[in-house]
Amino acid sequence: MLPKVLNNFFDEMGSISRFGFRFFKEGFVPRYEFREMIRQCYYVGYRSLPLVGLTAFIMGLVITIQSRPTLVEFGAEDWLPKMVSVSLLREITPVITALICAGKIGSGMGAELGSMKVTEQIDAMEVSGTNPFKYLVVTRVFATTLMIPLLAILGDAISLYGAYLGCNIRGVVSWQLYWNQVFETITYGDLIPSVLKTFFFGYAIGVIGCFKGYYSSKGTEGVGQSANSAVVLSSLLIFIIDLLAVQIIDILNLT
């Protein structure tokens, strides 16, 4: 027999998987909650943009400044824009964007739905003849799945601008030369897989955040726990998805 901790873990994983599949089962049949979905896209996308943008800018700047001494040591300073742009686009910006969103959006969803659960608002929705899963979960999961790739693409652009400034702190690289080097280096093989994996990041953040809130219990204490565990679990899942994505990209030789 499995120890209780493992048993609970597999039990929870099974419940999350069923919850995730239910999104596909209910998300593509009428009635469609377009209005609520647009509202969620606004909250997830537009409201997260300043935080994601600032973080991406700082990451671009910092990675460039940190990488310079090593490249200088090997006499490869000219490679700085190339190396930094590939690192940022392939890995750093998508993962950081997803982690920021897991913290901001995942916890928000866990807390909001958890609070609705303990104050019987989800039950009230159900007894009014509205499917709460469609209205609350499907719209949010759609919003995160569609908006996080967009945020990651914008984050890519902002982080590359940060990297340009980083290149010019200790050296001199013209605007045109910097972008020429960046676009010579990066290929669709760098960009497309990194954008594709952000759809999975977004889906994971939405499903985990909603699952934790939707099945919240134990009153206000449970709401806090839901928000907290939504962040922890979705952050962990982002790294697992990233690891799998790297392996799949490598096996399919997409780079």
């Binding site: 609705m116 104050t119 019987e120 608002q121 039950d123 009230a124 929705m125 159900e126 007894v127 009014s128 003849g129």
Partner: peptide, 14 residues
């Protein structure tokens, strides 16, 4: 459920 209304103890206003 459209024909049956439910008033919750906690009011359950959105």
């Amino acid at each position: 459920r459209v024909k049956v209304a439910f008033l919750f103890q906690s009011n359950a206003l959105y």
